[in-house]
Design a protein around this nucleic acid. Structure first.
Lengths: 140, 140
DNA sequence: TAGCAAATGCAATACTATTGCATTACCGCA
DNA sequence: TGCGGTAATGCAATAGTATTGCATTTGCTA
């Protein structure tokens, strides 16, 4: 099932309305390989002759993040669709510093070790943020 | 040796001038346990009856980052002094979501594993960004 | 299809970040 | 210690990013 369709299902199942703005944000994120900012999305929508207020885009992205349908990539200041919709746990990213292309993966062992170290230091971890920057195969 | 003194040494050794603004930014960062933003620093300096232009603060922080004397903590949008000045390699952070207090550590094994996985996925990693959020002992 | 609550759009505003250029002040050298 | 050259700063202007409150619209249920 496509990212957009799956997301719409999730929205409905949680009681959120499926609106035109939400669908368009989903489609914009779906079509992107690299992280896109709220204003990127605004421009993408405009290029199709439509319009979305940027405030709406911010709010939609917030919601999608809270539902784990998209991730915020801090090192890029942008958002990507979640590439592992069915896999829970800690998601990690490889981001190409040249083209911004993104690959997503999880690794339970790594996540476990990280938590162990944190706890040994008296810290109670809830969420790990991991973004590796470097070069993708193409840009190399 | 204190963070400020060490940093001044590094600045000199690389041919950078040791100026009043640079010293004040270093002192502000030194005194903070949680990440501080450029404008935070601006306010801290003002509370001492002094003044620094925010543009200068941005530039100083850029420089200090490039010298690995401070780190930018993306999940907080702020900067902290490097807590492991003598240890090279990949630095990781535990950030308390309540009070923002930060602990820094490195772990070669983790870093190595991360790189291995990345390479197996056709990616050439250069830098790992890891920030775990959760609760510190006090806030728990 | 009518009504309600959720969601959007708009306006205003605050915060964050960057650039170019004139002026200042740090540092090496006499 | 004082001077000159250059790196660094401050200022002004501007662009980009993010948030809030409120009136209006729209999706969804009955």
């Amino acid at each position: 099932m496509s990212f957009v369709k799956y997301s719409i299902q999730v929205l409905r199942s949680k009681g959120y309305k499926v609106t035109r703005p939400r669908k368009e944000v989903l489609e914009a994120v779906e079509s992107a390989t690299a992280p896109v900012s709220p204003y990127d999305i605004s421009r993408m929508v405009q290029q199709q002759g439509k319009h979305l207020d940027h405030v709406t885009i911010y709010r939609v992205l917030d919601l999608l993040c809270s539902l784990n349908l998209v991730h915020k990539v801090l090192s890029r200041g942008g958002f990507v669709k979640c590439g592992l919709l069915d896999e829970p746990g800690c998601h990690r990213f490889l981001v190409c510093r040249e083209c911004g292309v993104l690959q997503e993966f999880t690794d339970e062992a790594l996540c476990y070790q990280e938590s162990q170290i944190a706890r040994r230091m008296g810290f109670y971890p809830e969420h790990h943020l991991t973004e590796s920057s470097g070069l993708c195969q193409r840009c190399r």
